[in-house]
């Protein structure tokens, strides 16, 4: 708070306090883990650790994209539906290909082709979000809410309401396989996280994302092409949701028309627990990862402790509330 702050005791306190705030979610996680391992001997095992990591990898994919969106002071409610559609497209193409009755044409898809098509679907829907938000100034909440419905509708149309299953061993490997002793989904989400950390901290694009969320007017007057950055951010969010969709589909060996419902809420929860401000400009990818892990560990712990799923939801809700309340209390001191 001090303009001329040399190291006064007060500014030291502040510095100490703010770094404490940075680590508070980490501390919360440690306390959470200790508590659960005291109550259940199944928690602190290698198997369970991988289990948790694999479970949260999808949320980490989505929440990473969501973090970028939220940093620009936006929100993306469509990711759950986008995940479902991308998964369904990939599964459908892989299993059935495309038949065009008019030309008596059949196009088959390789594994790679189907996955790429799924990713493009997600990126395209994300770009559409970005386009309506920047070109027509539709508030992000509304624009992505519309796409939430649109993408779900397309998923139903594409799958005709039935799961698309039996997708082959190779495809199943993506979601269930191991590589160098680590589950493949954990590799995928890990690489995404590392890339996102580098992008947010080390690139011009990342800096612009923070600047736009911090003060859009100033960013615009500094010559930053706001629209281009925002469209890119929503496109990335859509693409990452699609990756999540492919992982989910592969793990279940089936594309469910109802896949991903309320996943956007888990992603947003991870983002806010991780300390990213919904008003934009402040937050980090690693915070979000921590947030996702907290949610994952909490879910896992509650299951291990035989807490009823109904109570699990109640607890999760209160944890989100608590996290944001603590965050607000901290930023008020700023």
């Amino acid at each position: 708070m001090q303009a001329l702050a040399k190291s006064t005791p007060e500014s030291n306190m502040k510095k100490y306090g703010s770094s404490l705030a940075k680590f508070q979610s980490l501390i919360a996680l440690v306390i959470l883990c200790l508590t659960i391992s005291l109550l259940s001997d199944k928690f602190f095992t290698v198997d369970n650790a991988w289990n948790v990591m694999r479970q949260i990898s999808v949320n980490i994919c989505i929440a990473t994209g969501m973090t970028l969106v939220v940093l620009t002071a936006g929100i993306d409610l469509s990711v759950g539906s986008v995940l479902a559609l991308a998964g369904a497209i990939t599964a459908g193409l892989l299993r059935n290909g495309i038949e065009i009755p008019a030309g008596n044409l059949y196009i088959g898809f390789t594994l790679l082709g189907a996955v790429v098509a799924g990713l493009l679907t997600g990126a395209l829907l994300g770009a559409f979000n970005g386009w309506t938000i920047t070109r027509f100034k539709v508030p992000p909440f509304v624009a992505t809410l519309a796409v939430l419905t649109i993408a779900r509708g397309f998923t139903m149309l594409w799958t005709k309401g039935f799961p698309i299953s039996s997708l082959g061993e190779n495809f199943a490997f993506l979601g269930t396989g191991w590589f160098l002793g680590i589950p493949l989904p954990v590799w995928i989400s890990g690489i995404i996280v590392i890339a996102a950390v580098v992008v947010t901290n080390k690139t011009r694009f990342g800096r612009y994302v923070y600047a736009i969320g911090g003060n859009e007017n100033a960013a615009k007057l500094s010559g930053i092409n706001i629209n281009r950055i925002k469209i890119a951010v929503y496109t990335i969010a859509g693409g990452l949701a699609a990756i999540g969709g492919i992982i989910v589909t592969s793990r279940l060996d089936s594309a469910q028309p109802n896949a991903g419902i309320t996943y956007e809420l888990d992603a947003i929860a991870a983002v806010v627990i991780g300390g990213t401000s919904l008003s934009g400009g402040r937050g980090s990818i690693m915070g979000t990862v921590l947030g996702a892990i907290i949610i994952g560990v909490l879910n896992n712990g509650l299951v291990l402790l035989n807490v009823s799923p109904f109570w699990q939801q109640v607890v999760k809700g209160f944890v989100i509330l608590l996290a944001v309340m603590i965050d607000k209390a901290n930023s008020k001191n700023d």
Partner: peptide, 8 residues
């Protein structure tokens, strides 16, 4: 409003 990004 237009010049600074106060949080950076």
């Amino acid at each position: 409003k237009d010049g600074l990004v106060p949080g950076l």
